[in-house]
Computed example of a mutant assay.
Amino acid sequence: MKEPHDDDAALFRSAIGPVRKLPERAAPPAAPKPKPRARMAERDEANAREEFRHPLAAQLLEAEDPLAYRGPDVTSAAWQRLRHGEISAQEELDLHGADARTAEALLRAFLGDAVRHGLGCVRIIHGKGGRGRNEIGSSGAPILKNLVDRMLRQRASVVAFHSPPPAQGGAGAVLVLLKPPGRR
């Protein structure tokens, strides 16, 4: 018995008539391969940035918590002067109203400029959070304050920082000691 597809094939050949083969031609050039990318490195970098922005909840500072970090090379006398606001800031950065991405970029640029200009102490005003929308994260902690804390701890040029006395900004600001120009 003939299969139904055999009849279809014969019907098709009779409908199209004789077939002639096309002359052989060289294949068109292949599309250029994309340049290699370090996708794993890009993914790792993106993950690190994301982790940096979202610390563990146990590490979050509250609005009234002071920012404080003392590097191993800071003397007790210098630490006490910083804590009491006795070291004057040579420049100041006010991050009020900035979103986290903008604040991060501004802080990086500000610290880079301070180091390039040989400054010893700067003040960063981050606020306590809570007055504007986007100032408090889903955990209830101030976003900019925690961002500033994490960024300062990771900068090699920062040797110490502490929230100043209330008259100089209190828990809404931080005084930052930078490495002396000769030791950078």
Rank of each mutant, 00 (worst) to 15 (best):
H126N: 07
G132A: 13
R108F: 06
H96N: 11
P164E: 12
M40E: 13
L93F: 05
K145D: 11
P166Y: 10
G169E: 07
L61F: 03
F110A: 04
H96I: 11
F161V: 01
D113N: 05
G97W: 00
P66F: 14
A77Y: 06
L106F: 11
A30T: 08
A46D: 01
L147S: 01
K145Y: 05
R81Y: 06
A100G: 09
P181N: 08
W79N: 11
G71S: 06
G130V: 13
A173F: 01
S76E: 14
P180S: 15
R53N: 03
G129Q: 13
Q168M: 03
V19R: 15
T75C: 02
T102K: 15
L106Q: 13
R155L: 12
A156W: 06
L11Y: 06
I87F: 04
A109N: 11
L106W: 06
L175T: 04
H117V: 08
R155P: 02
A26P: 06
L11T: 14
V122Q: 10
A100K: 07
I124L: 07
R101L: 02
P32M: 03
L111D: 02
I136L: 07
M1D: 07
D6E: 08
N146I: 05
L119H: 15
A31Q: 15
E135W: 01
L152S: 12
R70W: 09
S76F: 01
P180H: 13
R153W: 01
D8V: 13
P36E: 10
R13C: 15
P166N: 14
D94Y: 00
R20N: 10
A26D: 15
E62R: 10
R83T: 01
D73A: 11
F161Q: 00
P166G: 14
A38E: 10
A9R: 07
A109C: 15
L147P: 00
L82M: 10
P55Q: 04
